[in-house]
C-alpha cells in the first residue's frame, strides 16, 4: 500500500521531489510520449481509431477546432484522473470506471459549450456526446493511464489528443476548402477572384474517407511503414 500512497502523492510533485536523480520534465522518453502519436503512432492514421468522428465533424474548420479542443480536454483529464486512481480502481470494474470518468467529463464539456458557445454547440450537436464512444480516449486510459504515473499520462493524453486534432483539422481544411470554397468560413476562392464550383463530394463523408486515405498514404510513404502479418 505504501506504493499506492506514493503514487498518489506524486501527482503534482513527480518532477520536483524524486528520490532518484530527476528525470527531466521533458526527457527524451517523455518527448516521445508526445511526439509518437503525432506521426508514427497516430491514433487515426495508424491505429485507425476515432474514424467515425473524423468523418462526421470535419465538414467545416470551426466546429472541428472546437471538437479537437474538447477531445484534448477530455483525454488529458481522463488520463490524469484514471492515472491518479489507478491503484484504487478494482480491476474487475475498471472499464466501467473509465467510462464513467470519460462520460462525466464529456457531459461537463457539453454543458460548458451550451452555456458559453451556444452557436458552436448547436453545430456539433450530438458529436460532443459521442466523444464518450471515441475509442482513442478509452484506448489511452486502458493502455496507458492504468499503468503509468499521472504526469506521463498527461503527456500521453496530450500527444494522442494532438495527434487526433491535427488529422481532423487537416481533413476539415481540405473538405471546407473544396466543399464550400472557404476556410473558417472565409471565402478563399471568392476573394482570390477565382470562379470555383463547390464539390459536393467533399461535403459528404466520402470526401473525408478519400482525404484520410490520402493522408495515410502520404504518411506511410514518408515513414516507410508496412503492414505486418
Amino acid at each position: 500500500m505504501s506504493e499506492v500512497a506514493e503514487n498518489i502523492k506524486t501527482t503534482e510533485t513527480v518532477a520536483v521531489q524524486p528520490k532518484k536523480p530527476a528525470e527531466p520534465l521533458l526527457s527524451k522518453r517523455r518527448k516521445r510520449l508526445m511526439s509518437d502519436p503525432l506521426d508514427e503512432d497516430n491514433p487515426i492514421t495508424v491505429q485507425v481509431l476515432g474514424i467515425c468522428s473524423a468523418l462526421a465533424v470535419t465538414t467545416q474548420m470551426k466546429p472541428t477546432l472546437v471538437m479537437a479542443i474538447a477531445v484534448i480536454f477530455v483525454i488529458v483529464f481522463a488520463n490524469l484522473i484514471i492515472s491518479v486512481l489507478r491503484n484504487l480502481i478494482p480491476n474487475r470494474v475498471r472499464i466501467i470506471v473509465q467510462l464513467s470518468v470519460i462520460a462525466s467529463l464529456v457531459v461537463l464539456v457539453d454543458q460548458v459549450l451550451k452555456a458559453y458557445f451556444f452557436d458552436v454547440s448547436k453545430l456539433l450537436s450530438v458529436f460532443v456526446g459521442l466523444i464518450i464512444t471515441n475509442c482513442i480516449v478509452m484506448g489511452r486510459l486502458e493502455a496507458f493511464a492504468m499503468g503509468n504515473k499521472p504526469y506521463d499520462s498527461i503527456l500521453d493524453g496530450l500527444g494522442s489528443g494532438l495527434g487526433y486534432s491535427w488529422i481532423i483539422l487537416a481533413v476539415a481544411f481540405f473538405r471546407e476548402l473544396f466543399g464550400s470554397g472557404a476556410v473558417f468560413g472565409f471565402p478563399v476562392f471568392e476573394s482570390l477572384g477565382l470562379a470555383y464550383e463547390n464539390n459536393g463530394l467533399m461535403v459528404n463523408s466520402i470526401g473525408a474517407f478519400l482525404i484520410i486515405g490520402l493522408i495515410i498514404w502520404a504518411q506511410r510513404w514518408r515513414n516507410g511503414y508496412v503492414e505486418h502479418n
Binding site: S104, V107, L108, Q111, V112, K114, A115, Y116, F118
Partner: peptide, 19 residues
C-alpha cells in the same frame, strides 16, 4: 461524479437559459 455533474448543471443553468 454525479454530484459534480449536478453542481455543474445547476451552476451553468442560468447562463444556458439566457443563451
Amino acid at each position: 461524479l454525479g454530484g459534480l455533474l449536478a453542481l455543474a448543471a445547476v451552476a451553468l443553468r442560468p447562463e444556458q437559459k439566457k443563451q
